[in-house]
Each structure stands twice: as C-alpha cells, then as structure tokens.
Simulated assay, not measured.
Amino acid sequence: MRRYTILVATMAVATLGTTTQSCMTLATSSVGLSILKQILLGGITKGLNIFSDKNSFLANQLIEAALPQQLKDINNTLQNLGLGNLVQKEKEYIAQAAAFTVDVSRPILTNAVNSLTAEDAARIVQGGSGAATMILKERTSQQLMAAIAPKVDAKLNEFGIVKSLNTALAGTNILGGLFGGQNNTGSVTGGISRFASEQMVNGLFNIIQNHEQQNSSQILNSLGGLGTAR
C-alpha cells in the first residue's frame, strides 16, 4: 500500500511538472504572447476610456483607492474646516484634468506592451495573476508621471483649484507637514498636481490589473486550447 501511495505521488509530481512546462511553452510562444498582449491592451483601453469621462472617473473605486495619503490629508483638513464643497470641486477638476492625459499615456503603455518578449511572458506565467500589469508598471510608471504631471498641473492651475486650496489652507499646519517644512511659500503649488498625477497613474494600473485578473481564465483557456490543438 505504501509503495502504491509513493508511486501515485511520484506520478502526480511528474504530471504537474510536465503540465507546467507545457503551459510555459505555450505562454512564451508567439500565439501565447499575443494573447497576453491583447489582455493588457484591453485593460489599457478600458482604463483610458474611464479617464476620458469625468463621471466614470469619479465613480471608479479603483481610482479612488489610488488616492495618495497626502491628498487624503488635505481633503480631511478641508472637510474639518467645513469646506467639503471645495473637496468636491477639487475631485471634479482632477477628473476633468485626467481626460487631458489620455493622448500622452496611450502610446507609452501601448509601446511597452508591444515590446514584451517571450522572457517577459515566462516571468508573467511564473508570477501569476496580475504579474503582467506589474511588469508594465515597472517599465512605464516613471515615464507616465513625467508625461502627465505637466498637463495635470497646467489644467488644475487653469481651473483655479490650486489657488483656492492655497487660500483655504493658509494658516493651517497641513502644508508644512506635507512638504516637510521645505516649502517656503507654504503652498500646495506643484504638490497638488503631483499627488493628482500619482493617483491617476496608480489608478490606471489598478484598472489594468483588475482587467488582467478578470481575464486570467481566458488566458488559461486559450492556452489550453492551443495545447489541445497540438
């Protein structure tokens, strides 16, 4: 009985190893890599479509979850000062500014996806669900920040929200705390735009990763179909 158990266990391990190797081979093939790219591109399109619509941006919980702590602190302070209406305006203006980042974000993300290699696919397979988005984030987040921050800053200043926040927060301790006492002007100029840009970048990757995870079964089914076809 013991020998039989050991034999079954050995066969199971061998089968698992063969299956894993087979999945790896399929995933790193040109067809498998194409499937992975299609999933990522679908997530990018979904995210940027949300960014293009103010109401969709405001209603998206994955974007809300990406709100930096510094911006939360600013908003909490404003709420405590009885300026909840200013918080709402700030959020709406950030949502409007997001639409102006779509055209610069799309080529950065698309080019990164199209540059994925078989070696990247192997990392993705080993990393599991969400790994593809993490690789994409590693390679593009800094570039995205550099590209969209100036646009966000220009729009938020154009809308007048930065000036309004400076006026509302003057005399509070929040500004010195946020900028480590290094901001001689005691204002959120530049800072609010940076925080908003961070929210956009991280929120976008949250959407892409969620899309990847929702479609992970599609990836496996497709790869399984390829294996059957062979």
Rank of each mutant, 00 (worst) to 15 (best):
L40C: 05
R3I: 08
N210M: 04
G130I: 04
D153C: 02
V87Y: 02
L7C: 06
L169F: 04
F100Y: 14
A170Y: 15
G160N: 07
V31T: 12
T185L: 12
L16H: 01
Q142K: 10
F195K: 07
G176L: 04
Q69V: 10
T189V: 07
A229I: 11
I174Y: 03
S216A: 13
Q209F: 04
T10C: 13
L7G: 07
Q21P: 00
G84W: 15
A66T: 13
T167N: 14
A65M: 08
N173Q: 09
M24Y: 11
Q96V: 14
D120L: 04
A98K: 01
A229T: 12
A98P: 07
E92R: 02
T133K: 00
G186A: 01
Y4L: 12
E90Q: 13
L83R: 12
A170S: 15
F51S: 05
A118R: 08
N184L: 13
T18D: 09
G186S: 05
T228I: 14
V87H: 04
S216I: 10
F179I: 02
A97C: 05
L16R: 02
V87T: 12
F159D: 00
T18Y: 01
A59W: 11
F179A: 05
G176Q: 05
A14D: 15
F179L: 10
L144K: 10
L226H: 06
G203Q: 06
P68E: 03
I35Y: 08
T10K: 12
L7N: 06
R106M: 04
S105N: 12
A99T: 14
A112L: 02
D53S: 15
P107R: 02
E92P: 11
M134T: 14
Q213H: 11
G17I: 08
A122C: 11
N183F: 00
Q96P: 09
R123E: 08
A154S: 08
R123K: 14
V31D: 04
L144P: 06
P107Y: 03
R194A: 09
V31Q: 08
F195W: 06
S129L: 11
G32M: 04
N215P: 03
V113Q: 01
P150C: 04
L204V: 05
V87K: 10
K137N: 10
K163Q: 09
L169R: 00
A97E: 03
N183V: 00
A59R: 14
A14R: 01
A97T: 03
N157C: 03
N202D: 15
L144I: 12
L48I: 07
I39M: 02
M11G: 11
R106T: 06
T20Y: 06
S217G: 11
S129T: 14
I6N: 10
R3G: 05
F195H: 05
N202G: 08
L33D: 10
D103S: 15
Y93C: 08
V113Y: 01
I161Q: 00
Q182C: 00
S52C: 05
D103W: 09
A170W: 15
G128W: 12
S193E: 09
R2Q: 12
E90A: 09
L178W: 03
G130F: 11
T101P: 10
M145H: 07
